[in-house]
Amino acid sequence: MAIRTFGHTTITLPELDEPGLYLSNVDSLDSTRGTVQDFAYGEADLRSLDLAEAQLVTGRIAGIRAKRVEFEQVNIHGVEIGDSEFGSARWTESKLTRVHVRDCKLMGAALDGLVLDDVLFEGCKFDFATFEKIRVTGPVAFIGCVLTEASFTDCDLSDVVFTDCTLRLTEFGTGRYRNTDLRENDLSAIRGVAHLAKVRIDPGQQSDLAEALVNELDIAIGDD
């Protein structure tokens, strides 16, 4: 098993190079049985990538460039997704378990109703993405991700780790943030500071949160 540790969080990731495991190249993620297992899928330029009521189990997705992505009730277990661009992506009512998403662009993506367990987002771009009703049931981390003007609404991000992320105008709306680890990030330009009860920060980040709150409330500071 591949294990990565970030702060107090340890994530178990898929180990796809272990002896005895063979991944078969596939031309599509669609299957009449509804399940694709032990697969490798990649290096494709697509107009659209649509999946519904499907399961992807033990595999690697790499080098996919899709102009439109629609995933509905697509559950993923033991999969690496890397070096891909998912344009106009919408992913709803799905569960991700032991998933590593690396160096992917999901700018403007709409992620709604996902359940995350042992998931690592690393070096991904989520500019303008919307996260709604995301529920975390196991270790999850965003490492080196860009979340400019992304928003989290009605999410349970308890114990989630954000490290070395760009959080410029990232909005944290109503939700649960108990022990969400925001250390090692610039928090001075985030939104929704009032919702971040019980998060974890470094002592030096107190001024960041104060600056973010002043900006959000449009407070004028001066002698006149």
Rank of each mutant, 00 (worst) to 15 (best):
K95E: 15
V199R: 08
C155E: 04
A197C: 08
A189T: 13
F131T: 01
D164V: 00
G59Q: 08
T92H: 15
D154Y: 15
T170L: 11
N179A: 12
C165F: 07
G108R: 12
L147Q: 11
L196W: 13
D154S: 15
V136E: 01
T130N: 09
A89M: 14
R102L: 07
A89N: 06
G123N: 08
S158F: 03
L111N: 09
N185K: 10
C104N: 03
F71S: 02
T148M: 07
L182F: 14
G78N: 14
R68N: 09
G87C: 05
T180Y: 10
R176N: 10
V160A: 04
L120T: 01
T148I: 13
E85S: 14
V140F: 05
L157F: 10
P203E: 07
K125W: 04
H77R: 14
S88M: 07
R191N: 13
T58Y: 10
T58F: 11
L196C: 11
V69Q: 12
V136L: 01
T148R: 15
D159L: 03
V199H: 03
K133F: 10
Y177K: 14
R135K: 09
E122Y: 13
T166M: 09
E80G: 03
P203K: 03
V160S: 04
V193E: 11
N179C: 00
T148N: 13
T163L: 05
F121D: 01
R65M: 04
G204M: 01
H77I: 00
A194V: 09
T180F: 02
F121N: 00
W91Q: 06
G204E: 06
E93F: 14
A110P: 00
S88P: 01
A197Y: 13
V101Y: 09
E72A: 08
